[in-house]
Each structure stands twice: as structure tokens, then as C-alpha cells.
Amino acid sequence: MPVVTMTVNGEARSAEVEGRTLLVEFLRNHLGLTGTHVGCDTTQCGCCTVHVNGVAIKSCTALAVALDGAAVTTIEGLAQNGKLHPMQEAFREHHALQCGFCTPGMIMSAIDMVRRNGHALDERTVRKQLEGNICRCTGYHNIVTAVQAGAAAMKGQ
């Protein structure tokens, strides 16, 4: 079986995988990073969103072996020195979650949204660009507020 090596949250991590092993399986089952969730497993809900080489993708729809050598950031890699990432802090502050299952994906997706669109995000942009992330609890209102606040807070990073 092939061995893949990735830089995950800043650390070099290797594991023997099958050709069919998904990135999310590599992260959860091989590395024990269970913060990345599997919701739908059909590329729709976005709970499994992580950053690969700085770009947000759905890790349930990428082969681990195809990403040998990549740099991956998961929800576990956001907080620095015990301090939450500004987007995590904004989700906490604005109560942008209920059950919390979609939250890791929402946050990873939101940070990528800031990369693509900058720090001043209007409500329409946030709603449109969150199309790849599904929440079944909140009705999105507080998530949108949190993403806007988190985007602004990231400017000071």
C-alpha cells in the first residue's frame, strides 16, 4: 500500500493508505483528527471542509494518495498558543451553532471566503458563498453574523 506524507497543521504526518482512502478518512482514522466531520458523505454538506495548500475543499471527496506532499489545515490547527482563531471566536461570541456538527466545516469555509473576498463581507456575499455548507439547526442567521464579524476581526491578525 502507498505511504502518504502531508504537513497537517504544521507537522509532517505519514501513514500507509489504500488508493481509495479519502482525505477525511486519513485525517480521522489514521491521524485521529476527529474535528473534521463527515455529514452527508456525498459532497454536499461541507462538514468535512479542510484547507489543502490554503484552499478549502471537501475532504470526503478527495483521495489521500492524490494529496501526497500537500499542506493541510484542519479545525484543530486554527487555534494558536491556546487562543482561538478570530473566526472561531466570532462563532462563539455570536452563538453561531446549536448542535455544532457543521461548525468545523463552516469555520474552515468562512476563512477561505475571507481569502477569496477580503475582510468586508456583506450579508448577501456570505449567504451566497456558504452554499457549500449546510446547517440543519440554526437557520444560518447567527452564522452569517459570525462570519462577517470573524472576517473583520481577521484583519487585525
Binding site: G46, T49, I57, K58, T61, A62, S109, D112, R116
Partner: peptide, 9 residues
């Protein structure tokens, strides 16, 4: 097409 995460791939 799809959503931003799908368009990234």
C-alpha cells in the same frame, strides 16, 4: 457550478 468548495476542485 456547485458551490465554492466544489469549484476549488
Amino acid at each position: 457550478i456547485g458551490d465554492p468548495l466544489v469549484r476549488n476542485r
